[in-house]
């Protein structure tokens, strides 16, 4: 049974169709690479899924419930969590408070004690153990990214959306991060990764989809997709422009 179904999702900004009739479905526990050149609509598609933006047309079904056009807090309660391409942390709160938020207000509405337990576990998973009382505003960029992931994990999501979460890591960190994502997937989480680092996509995602200029141009096993004529052309086209 599909945990996520997207039917012809469309988002128009003024005259620009950033996401154009995109359809695909995911099974529970799948880990999917969402690829495409800059400006192809990947982040906008994640925004439609998380409720940050409402689709101009089309339908989004999460866990068999129609979530089209619902607010992010409703979609979060349906078991969707995300990280943001431009990192978003809560600078005036401590790390623990940053993460507790999604345990307290998320789908399971934990009380304070349980939420703290979950937050600490999430911080540990994300590699921030022992920093619970630090102020989030003082973190390095990399630790901010970790914090965002911890916050997403503390929501105990079924579906995790990651927008270029691996960008900016050095090779060692990338190696650790890949292992972490694999472990999350091993727990049964369904994951969509927007990613430009092909090495990581190959390592983690059995299946990938590719967008170009808002349209879905490929969907299939990652190796096949990356060799697809249209996909190669889309990326080369971008290289030509640059």
């Amino acid at each position: 049974m599909s945990i996520l179904e997207i039917h012809e999702a469309t988002r128009i900004f003024g005259g620009l169709t950033a996401v154009n009739k995109v359809s695909f479905a995911m099974e529970a526990g799948e880990i999917l690479g969402l690829l495409g050149p800059n400006g192809s609509g990947k982040t906008t598609l994640l925004n439609l899924l998380s409720g940050a933006l409402a689709p101009s047309a089309g339908r989004i079904v999460i866990g068999r419930r129609d979530m089209t056009g619902r607010k992010p807090n409703i979609i979060a309660r349906q078991g969707v969590a995300r990280t943001f391409q431009l990192v978003r942390i809560l600078p005036s709160l401590t790390l623990e408070e940053n993460v507790i938020v999604s345990a307290v207000f998320g789908r399971n509405r934990h009380d304070k004690e349980a939420a703290r337990r979950i937050a600490r576990a999430a911080l540990r998973d994300a590699g921030l153990e022992g920093m619970e009382t630090c102020s989030a505003g003082d973190l390095t960029y990399l630790d901010q990214k970790r914090l965002e992931l911890a916050r997403a994990l503390a929501a105990e999501p079924d579906i995790l959306l990651m927008d270029e979460w691996l960008a900016g890591l050095n090779p060692t960190e990338l190696h650790e991060a890949v292992a972490l994502v694999r472990a999350l997937s091993g727990r049964g989480m369904t994951i969509i990764m927007v990613e430009h680092i092909m090495e990581a996509v190959r390592a983690l995602c059995p299946r990938s989809i590719v967008m170009n200029a808002g349209t879905l141009i490929a969907d299939g096993p990652t190796a096949n997709v990356l060799n697809d004529r249209h996909v190669v052309a889309a990326y080369l086209g971008e290289a030509d422009d640059a």
Binding site: A52, A76, S92, F105, R107, R151
Partner: peptide, 12 residues
Amino acid sequence: DDETVAAHAGID
């Protein structure tokens, strides 16, 4: 701090 984060964490 951040309304977008608040909404995505489940806050109405």
